[in-house]
Amino acid sequence: KELVLALYDYQEKSPREVTMKKGDILTLLNSTNKDWWKVEVADRQGFVPAAYVKKL
């Protein structure tokens, strides 16, 4: 499975999103959308801005 690194803190703004902290390592589930990537963090799945994460 592919992992991404959170480059910035992100606070979810809708139930479809997830909160992450800078430095978090997240499991990447889907990166087909260039703006929003689906990730899993702490047993929750949701979207984060693609610009806020980097593939490892």
Rank of each mutant, 00 (worst) to 15 (best):
G46C: 04
K1Y: 14
R16K: 12
A50P: 06
E2D: 12
S31N: 10
Y8H: 12
K22W: 04
E2T: 13
Y10L: 01
Q45H: 10
Q11C: 11
Y10A: 00
K21E: 07
D24Q: 14
D9V: 02
L26P: 00
E2K: 09
W36K: 02
Y8S: 08
L7V: 07
E12D: 05
K13L: 09
S31Q: 09
T19M: 04
D35E: 13
W36D: 01
W36M: 06
M20S: 00
K1D: 08
N33Q: 11
L56A: 05
L28I: 05
T32G: 10
L56W: 09
T27E: 12
V4E: 00
K55N: 07
L5I: 15
E17P: 04
N30P: 04
R16F: 13
V18M: 12
D43Y: 10
E17H: 06
D24S: 08
K54N: 07
Q45V: 13
E40V: 10
P15M: 11
A50I: 03
D24A: 08
L26A: 08
Q45C: 12
D9I: 02
Y52W: 07
V41F: 12
L26M: 12
Q11M: 14
A51C: 15
T32Q: 12
A50E: 04
L29C: 08
Q11F: 14
I25N: 02
I25W: 06
K55R: 15
L7Q: 04
L28H: 01
T19P: 07
K54F: 10
A50S: 13
Y8K: 15
L56K: 04
Y10S: 00
N30H: 07
R44E: 05
Y52V: 08
A42Q: 13
G23F: 05
F47Q: 04
G46A: 03
P15W: 08
K21T: 09
V4M: 05
A6N: 00
V41I: 15
I25C: 07
K1W: 13
V4I: 08
R44T: 07
P15L: 10
D24I: 05
L5R: 09
T32V: 10
T32R: 10
V18G: 02
W37H: 03
K1A: 11
S14L: 09
K22G: 05
L29R: 03
V4S: 03
M20H: 01
Y8I: 09
Y52G: 09
K13W: 05
L7W: 04
K22M: 08
D43G: 15
Y10P: 01
W37N: 01
S31T: 09
K38T: 09
E40H: 07
K55C: 11
A6T: 04
K54I: 15
L7I: 11
F47R: 03
K34G: 10
D43V: 08
S31P: 07
N33D: 15
K22D: 02
D35W: 15
L56R: 03
V18I: 15
K1G: 10
G23L: 03
D43L: 08
V39T: 00
A50C: 08
